[in-house]
Design a protein around this nucleic acid. Structure first.
Length: 260
DNA sequence: ATGGTAGCTGGGCTA
């Protein structure tokens, strides 16, 4: 089974690239973030023609997450009760939603950005991560993957220039501790060993062309899934304005190969 | 310290 995660920065504007990506890599399940689409703007007919459906979607008026899977592969759709929302009318499931596909429960996560360390959104980010950790601690016995945009750089090497991030989010000790806490609970981050390198390059200042990026997209797997991982890769071509058609997302997809 | 780009929307927010 091939599983992928991708912050697409608008599923509607990127649908051509998403379809091409799914076909090119024979992906079975794709966790997408920043769909920027309401549920009534899904499903997407082009995807259905290619054999995919929206297995799960959680959206609000300005953002959302979803899971696309081969038609018939998904079993159930699950939202998230314990996830704190931010203001109204933000729905908690717009940041975390799951579907069971081929026996693996796949979560698509969009961890709050945090904005700046002195911003209330930063506190919210840590609160949100703590709530996710508490809930996820009960999921490790079942085949589960927590995939998505974590908005955290776990090490200094995950930033193109750590000095530039001295007063920024994504690299602070509390954020890194929150990320590491999942490993302490028995989750295995399964992308880095096979797919080192950045997954996000800001649109500003030709950051992709200069390879000045961040590594912030990850997949934590429960032990049974971690044991099935055969490989992973970052498809940088999907971030390349010179490749494919239409403008790229600011994130590249991460693909995970699982043994049957 | 600021501004740089992109998307949704239809001016300003979010990232």
């Amino acid at each position: 089974m091939r599983l992928a995660t991708w912050n697409v920065n608008s599923l509607r504007s990127r649908i051509g690239r998403v379809e091409a990506f799914l076909a090119r890599h024979d992906v079975d399940v794709l966790a997408v973030q920043e769909t920027k689409s309401r549920e009534d703007q899904l499903p997407l007919m082009g995807l259905q023609a290619e054999g995919y459906e929206v297995a799960a979607a959680g959206t609000n008026q300005w953002n959302g997450v979803a899971i696309l899977s081969r038609i018939g592969l998904d079993d159930v759709q699950i939202g998230f009760d314990g996830m704190p929302g931010w203001g109204e009318p933000e729905a908690p499931e717009s940041r975390a939603i799951a579907a069971t596909c081929g026996g693996v429960r796949v979560w698509s996560l969009y961890v709050p950005n945090g904005r700046k360390p002195d911003d209330p959104h930063y506190t919210y980010k840590l609160t949100w991560l703590a709530a996710l950790r508490t809930a996820a601690a009960g999921w490790t016995a079942a085949p589960t993957v927590l995939a998505g945009d974590w908005n955290i750089c776990p090490t200094d090497d995950d930033v193109f220039d750590i000095k530039q991030f001295a007063k920024s989010t994504h690299v602070t000790p509390p954020e890194r501790a929150a990320f590491a806490a999942f490993a302490a609970d028995g989750w295995h981050e399964v992308t880095r060993a096979h797919a080192p390198g950045y997954t996000y390059w800001d649109y500003y200042r030709q950051r992709f062309e200069r390879d000045r990026g961040l590594k912030i997209d990850f997949a934590y797997a429960s032990p049974s899934v971690a044991g099935r991982v055969r490989g992973a890769f970052i498809d940088r071509d999907e971030r390349d304005p010179a490749q494919g058609s239409g403008s790229p997302s600011d994130h590249a997809p991460v693909v995970l190969e699982l043994a049957d």
